[in-house]
């Protein structure tokens, strides 16, 4: 349970400002970026007209996102946003999935360890402390101990900072695109509502227009809901895993939950985040 409250933080000051940084999340983000870059190079290294397995996989993923984007934004606008949207999608997806790796290796290590122990008798020891706390501790000299000692990975999206950064990127894209497309005046007029007329000099009355403030608040709260949706789901899944594995240590139930929250919720939340980004762009376009 102390996993919940312990957050590693490095603090330093740059030009008088105090900066605090979570090094694990930082490293994990770069790991995700490295995985994606290597994956992209591997997929596009030898492009053929008749795609191989890897290229086929990449094309399916890309075409899916392209379909969704073009379907929402229209042919011309859609095409120009596909690279950004696809990048957001695979980043969030990889970030949601990267936390699973240590659990899988640990589970494999446990199975190998239990079988090894059953045959040779010196693979480790069973620590029996009631039904809920029975667990297998492997011997540090065995060949599979490395699987157990695999470092703990954290999903970058489990930290609110990553999610807020992604949400702010989408926010900036949405509003810059809206201003570029419609001109600042029309964009600004969109905040006025219908009670006070918003043409000509009437627009100068915006400080007394209550709808102006409500629309601004609803724009800001869309960033909050966009990023907290991802954060809440990933963090909630992690928390369920912590609670369940603290109740039932190293048994099969945490692995089943992990497969559910890690793989399924990861892909659903990545899709939802991407779709909402497309929707926000389309609304203001």
């Amino acid at each position: 349970m102390d996993k919940l409250t312990h957050v590693p933080i490095i603090e330093f000051s740059v030009m008088g400002y105090n900066v605090s940084l979570n090094p694990v999340i930082f490293l994990m983000t770069y790991l995700v970026i490295a995985v994606l870059v290597i994956g992209a190079i591997a997929v596009t290294r030898r492009l053929k007209a008749v795609p191989g397995t890897l290229q086929n996989f990449g094309e399916i993923l890309y075409e899916f996102i392209e379909d969704v984007t073009v379907g929402t934004l229209g042919e011309k606008d859609g095409k120009s946003f596909v690279p950004l949207i696809f990048t957001i999608f695979i980043f969030v997806l990889a970030a949601n999935w990267i936390g699973i790796l240590p659990h899988i290796t640990q589970f494999l290590g446990m199975i190998i360890g239990v079988i090894h122990h059953a045959f040779t008798g010196n693979g480790g020891e069973w620590v029996i402390d009631g039904i809920m706390n029975t667990q297998f501790r492997p011997n540090p000299h065995t060949f599979y101990y490395g699987l157990f000692a695999f470092p703990e990975f954290q999903e970058p999206t489990r930290s609110i900072n990553t999610d807020l950064a992604l949400g702010l990127i989408v926010f900036a894209v949405v509003h810059i695109n809206a201003v570029r497309k419609n001109g600042f005046l029309d964009y600004f007029r969109g905040y006025m509502g219908d009670i006070i007329p918003s043409h000509g000099f009437w627009i100068l009355l915006f400080p007394i227009n209550p709808f102006f403030y409500l629309n601004v608040i609803s724009e800001v709260s869309s960033v909050v809901s966009h990023s907290f949706r991802l954060f809440g789901n990933i963090f909630g899944g992690f928390m369920i895993l912590v609670i369940v594995s603290s109740l039932v240590k190293y048994m099969l139930i945490p692995v089943g939950l992990l497969a559910f929250f890690g793989l399924f919720a990861g892909v659903v939340q990545a899709f939802v985040f991407t779709m909402l980004a497309i929707t926000y762009i389309g609304q203001k376009n």
């Binding site: 809440g232 789901n233 963090f235 909630g236 369920i240 609670i243």
Partner: peptide, 11 residues
């Protein structure tokens, strides 16, 4: 999802 949020806050 809403249960997961409630569980998070509760925990």
């Amino acid at each position: 999802t809403s249960t997961i949020f409630a569980l998070t806050v509760s925990m």
